[in-house]
């Protein structure tokens, strides 16, 4: 019983985790991309569409990643090359993604999807209590954990990660040291887009294998909140995503067993929890001041 709840929490947490860890890298490089929701929903529709036309969920995942990255480069071109306002451009990306995905996805509404199967790791998956939860999961679950570990290692144990963080903390100094600020940021933005696309594919290939318009339902925004919640630390994103997964699965279970609270109120819980968590974190000014990338959201025009 406990194990199956843990597994459902993981399916709710994984898309949040993948999208948030991508956005964390973007924000660490000093760019605020509010288009996560739009890139995610594009990933969802692409993943689903390619999967049902080719019959291969793996091709769907690959296409979703590529489309997510390509879509994010649109944002990158505007904010990095044309130095437009990052907040407004991110919103534009979300509105565009919701519009375009609705249009593309019209052909797929009501079609049965193909679920990405689970992979069981021999021996380990037979462990009592945690075996099924940790070692018999869909492949993207493993990818999400590897992503967190990889990002944590990259940011804090590699030279390239240090470069990326320096660009996010002081782009003028980084530029003076000969680092190409814009190139680093393009890379980070594309990585964030690829992750958001992957997270979207998770929704339409694992979480609910079908296409529903606006199926991301604000998860992209929750992922953005998770990055703040985690104060830009990779492993805390993991904790935050599972906390949110627990909240949303908790409310689903409460609806299923018929708690005498209107279902709409329960459905509102993840959004209210997001607000509550944001307030709790931002109250602690020292914590946010220390960890927020100092150049977050600030435009950079190289001095020549």
């Amino acid at each position: 019983m406990l194990e199956s709840i843990l597994i459902t929490i993981a399916t709710a947490a994984t898309p949040l985790l993948i999208a948030a860890i991508g956005e964390l890298v973007v924000e660490r490089s000093g760019v605020l991309n509010l288009g996560v929701e739009g890139m995610m929903v594009m990933g969802a529709v692409t993943g689903f569409g390619v999967t049902v036309t080719t019959g291969s969920p793996w091709l769907g995942v690959l296409a979703a990643v590529l489309v997510g990255a390509a879509f994010s480069l649109l944002f990158g071109f505007l904010t990095l090359t044309l130095v437009t306002n990052q907040v407004a451009t991110g919103l534009a990306l979300t509105l565009l993604g919701l519009g375009v995905s609705g249009m593309i996805g019209e052909a797929f509404i009501g079609m049965p999807g193909i679920k990405l199967g689970s992979i069981a790791i021999p021996i380990l998956s037979d462990l009592p209590y945690v075996g099924r939860f940790l070692f018999r999961q869909d492949p993207l679950f493993y990818v999400s954990i590897l992503l967190v570990a990889g990002v944590a290692w990259f940011l804090f144990y590699t030279r390239a990660g240090l470069t990326l963080r320096s660009v996010g903390d002081n782009h003028d100094s980084a530029h003076a040291l000969g680092i190409s600020v814009i190139a680093v940021r393009y890379g980070a933005v594309a990585f964030g887009g690829a992750c958001a696309g992957l997270a979207g594919a998770y929704l339409s290939l694992v979480y609910t294998p079908q296409w529903i318009e606006n199926m991301t339902a604000g998860r992209g925004w929750i992922a953005l909140a998770l990055v703040v919640f985690a104060s830009w630390r990779p492993w805390r994103v993991l904790a935050g995503a599972y906390l949110f997964g627990a909240v949303s699965i908790g409310q689903l279970h409460a609806q299923a067993i018929g708690v005498s609270v209107p279902s709409q109120f329960l459905s509102a819980l993840p959004y209210l929890a997001t607000i509550a968590v944001l307030v709790l974190i931002s109250r602690n000014r020292r914590l946010t001041m220390v960890n927020t990338p100092a150049c977050l959201g600030r435009p950079f025009v190289p001095a020549r």
Partner: peptide, 14 residues
Amino acid sequence: SDKAARAFQGMLLF
């Protein structure tokens, strides 16, 4: 598709 209008609006903002 009436969804095209939303895509259109998003492009406009870009």
